[in-house]
Simulated assay, not measured.
Amino acid sequence: MSNIEKFAPRLRTLIDESGITVRSLAKDLNVSVGVLSDWQNGNKTPRGDSIMKLTEYFGVTADYLLGLTDASTIDADIRISCDTTGLSEKAVKILSGMEKSDVEKLSKLIEFYSTIR
């Protein structure tokens, strides 16, 4: 799946998770329901100004919406960590909240796994 092909499913997921109706979102974004449906179904990709409205509305980055990264957060450190390590955003957040001693133990476990692989 190309990066741009990730846009429609990500938009659908964001809409579903938010619990908002397509009609209400279209109104909030000042677009027609038909245009929003085209975006959700992958028939069209929004222009830059509409992408920015979507990022502001859902609190995600344009890079996430467009499939350039799998981290939706606007926190640059978390995005970089996800992109560099391949870990999910949730995993990076869990790691960043762990005690240093636990992170060190996990690091040793990963290194051990690497040797037996």
Rank of each mutant, 00 (worst) to 15 (best):
G34Q: 13
N3M: 10
E99K: 15
I80Y: 10
I94D: 13
N43S: 12
L95R: 05
N3K: 12
V60A: 03
G86C: 04
T21S: 15
E56R: 10
P9K: 06
D70Y: 08
K6S: 12
S2E: 12
R79Q: 12
S101L: 10
L54R: 02
D77N: 13
L29P: 05
F7D: 04
I4G: 01
L29V: 08
I94S: 09
T13F: 13
G59M: 06
T69Y: 00
F58K: 06
Y113G: 00
V60H: 03
V31R: 06
L54C: 02
R12I: 06
I74L: 10
V22W: 04
V60C: 08
S72M: 09
D28V: 01
Y113A: 00
L25R: 09
D75G: 01
I74C: 06
T115D: 08
V103L: 15
I51D: 01
D49K: 14
I74Y: 02
S107W: 05
R79G: 02
A71N: 01
A76M: 07
S72V: 01
I78V: 15
K100C: 07
I110W: 00
T55M: 09
S18A: 12
E111A: 06
I110G: 00
S107I: 08
S50T: 14
K53I: 07
L25G: 08
L87H: 09
I15L: 15
V103F: 05
L109G: 03
V35C: 07
T84C: 08
K27Q: 13
I116V: 15
T84M: 11
R117Q: 13
D38H: 14
R47S: 13
T45K: 11
L36Q: 10
S96T: 11
S96E: 10
L14D: 02
D28Y: 01
L68V: 03
T13Q: 15
K108L: 05
I94P: 03
T61S: 15
M1N: 05
D70G: 12
D28F: 00
L65K: 08
G86T: 05
K53Y: 05
S24T: 14
E17T: 13
D38Q: 15
L25Y: 08
D77E: 14
Y57A: 05
S24G: 09
K53P: 06
A91T: 14
I116S: 03
L54G: 02
M98P: 07
L14K: 09
S50A: 14
R47M: 11
V35E: 12
I116R: 08
R12P: 01
N41A: 06
F112P: 00
A8W: 04
I4R: 09
A91R: 14
N3G: 11
S24Q: 13
S50H: 11
K53A: 13
I80T: 14
T13W: 11
G42T: 09
D102G: 05
F7I: 06
K105W: 01
M52P: 00
D16R: 15
S107L: 11
T21G: 13
T69H: 00
T73Q: 09
P9G: 07
T69Q: 00
M52D: 15
V33M: 07
G97C: 07
T69P: 00
A71C: 09
I51C: 01
L14G: 03
P9A: 06
T45A: 11
L54F: 01
M52A: 14
